[in-house]
């Protein structure tokens, strides 16, 4: 597993750094020109830009035939799928931390505190986790040639689902507020979005695994 993660890292580390720098620059530009209604877009953009090269891993592996070769190494098909999902998740976590850092930094520099940073960042995290959850099974079914459309579709799908989920999140927030759980009410929404994202991501892993197990090379 460590070897597979290391390969993924080597495959994309340059574009990962480029995209991360790009994410910081774009967020700085949006912060400067746009109003607070764009904050959620910034959070999503930072995490999505960091995660995009990770979805390219499958394309790069397929281009050189490494997707076939890797199965001749002492790893199982399960290990390969796990490595894709774990690597993407680690990058989403890094993106979430960076996104939080960018918002905190902006609050500090601009001296105008951004409210609900955790809430905003959790919204972005959900969208990007959902994009991965949608993209991986589709990449295994349709192959790397369709990866550009799948990645784009995943991001758009994540955004629509995040908006569509607002009603359900509101409903659960009311339940949580009525419960005696010792969780600050300001954390209810981010916790719910993160939880929904995780559940979908894990469900997607099992679907992707069953697809990948039957895949022929």
């Amino acid at each position: 597993m460590r070897g597979l993660l290391l390969t993924n890292y080597y495959l994309i580390h340059r574009s990962f750094l480029t995209y991360t720098a790009l994410a910081i620059v774009i967020s700085a530009v949006i912060f400067y020109f746009a109003d607070p209604s764009f904050y959620r877009i910034i959070a999503m953009l930072i995490i999505l830009l960091m995660a995009m090269p990770v979805l390219e891993v499958i394309k790069l592996e397929s281009k050189t035939g490494y997707d076939k070769y890797v199965l001749t190494l002492p790893v199982s098909r399960k290990n390969v799928v796990q490595s894709h999902y774990v690597f993407y998740f680690l990058i989403v976590v890094s993106g979430t931390i960076l996104s939080y850092g960018v918002f905190s930094m902006y609050s500090l520099i601009s001296k105008s505190a951004v409210e609900d940073i955790v809430n905003i960042v959790a919204f972005g995290t959900f969208i990007v986790l959902f994009a991965g959850a949608l993209a991986y099974p589709l990449l295994y079914v349709f192959g790397a040639e369709k990866s550009d459309g799948i990645v784009l579709g995943g991001g758009m799908g994540g955004l629509f689902v995040a908006i569509a989920l607002q009603g359900a999140v509101g409903y659960f927030v009311e339940i949580l507020a009525a419960s005696s759980l010792p969780i600050a009410s300001s954390l209810h929404v981010p916790i719910l979005y993160t939880l929904f994202g995780m559940v979908m991501y894990i469900a997607s892993y099992f679907i992707a695994l069953s697809i990948y197990r039957k895949r022929e090379f």
Partner: peptide
């Protein structure tokens, strides 16, 4: 070739050492 071509031999050695 079928190996990840954007790696160097040194990087490949590290990968296979782990695998």
């Amino acid at each position: 070739i079928n190996l990840p071509v954007s790696l160097t031999i040194k990087q490949l050695n590290k990968v296979f050492k782990s695998l």
